[in-house]
Amino acid sequence: MSSQPERSANHLTLALPKGRILEDAISLLSRAGLPITMPEASRALRHEFPGVTVLELRNQDVPVYVDLGVADAGIVGKDVLIESGRAVYEPVDLRFAPCHLSLIREVGASGPIHRVGTKYPHVARQYLAEKGIPAEIVKLNGNIELATLTGLADAVIDLVQTGGTLRANNLQEVDVLFYSSARLIVNRAALKLRRERLRPLIARLRELVREES
């Protein structure tokens, strides 16, 4: 059924997002005692370490791999986790990659919102429903700010890190939906079945986060 090699009962499979978070994630996990290092730049997507396999994924795919149990645990932004709607455990806030998800409009815009552009359609739908804003949602995949500037949408819901992009494009945050940061997520069955490895890892990560903040 699966092409995975035979592994010991305590083997851990981790889902990590490629890109900026990967380096922070690997550094934190290795300080927490896992024998993993930053993989050499290569085309490999699956990296084997003693007792640990690291899967390098698009960040939206991390909750999928963990929820469906292919990975035992993973690291992903809270924003991606909420959008995924996946029922996984999220025992540790790792505090890095901080950002927030905001409703953004052009400076001075005050008219009604008919259409909202976003990479986060589920979050957007829930937010707009709670606020009673009967707007249409357009799912976009990048450079979300352009949607307001070009008139594709009256507002966008997007991540804000430093606010630099907003200032450069004459945009402002109208409302903050929630604050996000990287989270350790764990498959519900794996936490119980591999608790001898995962419980100490969780405890060590909590200590590290506390020491470093």
Partner: peptide, 9 residues
């Protein structure tokens, strides 16, 4: 139920 320490805080 989600064992979310962050959401408890």
């Amino acid at each position: 139920d989600r064992k979310s320490g962050a959401d408890i805080d």
